[in-house]
Simulated scan of single mutants.
Amino acid sequence: MSDSVPFGALYVVATPIGNLEDMTFRAIRVLKDVSLIAAEDTRHSRRLCTHFGIETPLTSCFEHNEARKGDYLIQRLQRGEDIALISDAGTPAISDPGSLLVQRCCEAGIVVHPVPGASACVAALSMAGLPTDRFCFEGFLPAKQQARRQALQCFVAEQRTMVFYEAPHRLINFLGDVIEVLGEERQLVVVRELTKLHEERVGGTAREVLEYFSQGKVRGEIVVLLAPAEPQPIEESVEESLLRELRDTDQPMKVVAKQVAKLHGLSGSEVYALAVQLREKGQLDPQ
Score class of each variant (00 low, 15 high):
F213Q: 11
V190M: 02
L197D: 06
H198S: 13
R219P: 15
Q232I: 10
L197F: 10
K196R: 14
K196P: 11
K196C: 05
R207P: 01
G203E: 11
K217W: 15
P231G: 01
H198R: 15
K217Q: 15
L194D: 00
G220W: 11
V223M: 13
R219S: 15
H198M: 15
A227D: 02
V224S: 03
V224D: 03
R219A: 14
T195G: 01
E208K: 00
V190P: 07
V223D: 05
E193Y: 07
L210K: 10
V202A: 05
I222Y: 12
R192K: 14
K196G: 02
V223P: 12
R192S: 07
Q232M: 14
V224K: 07
R192I: 00
Y212L: 06
L194C: 03
L225R: 07
G220D: 01
F213E: 09
Y212G: 06
V202W: 06
R201M: 10
R219V: 12
G204K: 01
L226M: 03
E221S: 09
L194Q: 07
V223Y: 08
V224T: 05
A229G: 02
K196T: 06
V223W: 11
V209W: 04
L194P: 01
T205Y: 02
E200M: 10
V209C: 05
G203C: 09
H198D: 14
R219Q: 15
H198E: 13
E193A: 04
T195R: 05
V218L: 13
Y212D: 10
